[in-house]
């Protein structure tokens, strides 16, 4: 095969459009179309119903919708706090420490990711049905906090999102060089100070990514909620309310809730992208 001449090689190197760029760019556009297509379908469907703006506003501000929105926000943020408190130390331990059975622990942490959501709900029912779990359930009920309340919702969301949190945080700590912790020790840091002043700031982008992932997953949890806390008016979050409205044929209300969730997700993602923006000044 003839070698390309020098000027031809330069042209090949300088060429922006090649097979890979066309394929990857095309796939990116396709993925974008899927997202944009779904959102526009929601909007157009609602628009096709020719609902007056007043009706639409009443839909968004209906007492039940607002209550579901509030409950969704409160529970998903509580879940996020719980996951942050547990996943950061757990992810750090998995990333930094070598201990017997580490491979097994690493695998077990991922189990909730692979479980069908309904199975998580059934497992929670089973756990709180007897033994220690039943004792906890009765104790909570004695304190006036039944499991079928925001507590149950947070539990379902926590089990469904914890693994994502640990996995993402672990990857973030893996990417933060351990050698820098060693340097911090020689500069007078205790293990805790090295974690707080060096490793955690270095893992910050990954930890924030974990937060958004956990929050987005948590707010959308549906299957375990249907099994574990049901759809009573006091435990209706946005996904369960959407399903209830859909099941009685109120597709407009259902789509309106979907749009609210999309706006919330969009706002959350924008906030995270803002926090993760590169700070580039020499």
């Amino acid at each position: 095969m003839n070698k390309p001449r020098a000027e031809e090689q330069l042209r090949i190197v300088g060429r922006r459009i090649n097979g890979l760029s066309v394929l990857s760019g095309g796939m990116l556009v396709f993925c974008l179309l899927v997202v944009v297509g779904l959102v526009t379908a929601d909007v157009f469907y609602l628009a096709s119903k020719k609902l007056p703006w007043v009706d639409l506003w009443q839909l968004f501000t209906a007492r039940t919708v607002v209550r579901a929105m509030k409950l969704s926000m409160v529970t998903s943020l509580a879940t996020l706090a719980l996951v942050v408190v547990t996943a950061i130390p757990a992810g750090y331990a998995l990333s930094r420490f070598r201990f017997p059975g580490r491979a097994l622990v690493n695998t077990l942490v991922d189990v909730p990711i692979f479980l069908p959501p309904v199975v998580v709900g059934v497992s929670l029912l089973a756990f709180f049905g007897f033994g220690l779990g039943r004792g906890v359930k009765l104790a909570l009920a004695g304190l006036g906090v039944p499991l079928v309340s925001w507590i149950g919702i947070v539990l379902c969301q926590y089990v469904m999102t914890m693994s994502y949190g640990i996995r993402t945080v672990k990857a973030a700590f893996d990417a933060a060089p351990k050698d820098l912790e060693h340097v911090a020790f020689t500069l007078g840091c205790s293990q805790w100070q090295a974690f707080w002043r060096v490793s955690l700031p270095l893992a910050r982008p990954g930890v924030l990514a974990a937060c958004i992932l956990v929050w987005a997953r948590g707010i959308g949890v549906f299957g375990p909620l249907m099994v574990f806390v049901g759809t009573g008016p006091r435990v209706q979050v946005m996904p369960t309310m959407m399903w209830l409205e859909l099941s009685v044929g109120n597709i407009e209300v259902s789509l309106a809730i979907a749009l609210i969730m999309l706006v919330m997700a969009g706002a959350g993602l924008t906030a995270v992208h803002f926090l993760l923006r590169p700070r580039s000044s020499p």
Binding site: D179, V183, T186, G188, L202
Partner: peptide, 20 residues
């Protein structure tokens, strides 16, 4: 003694500067 109490200044190959 733990590394932090030794009072030894350590400079690794790449400097080990904290990028944040």
């Amino acid at each position: 003694l733990e590394a932090r109490f030794r009072n030894i200044g350590y400079v690794p190959q790449d400097g080990g500067l904290f990028p944040h």
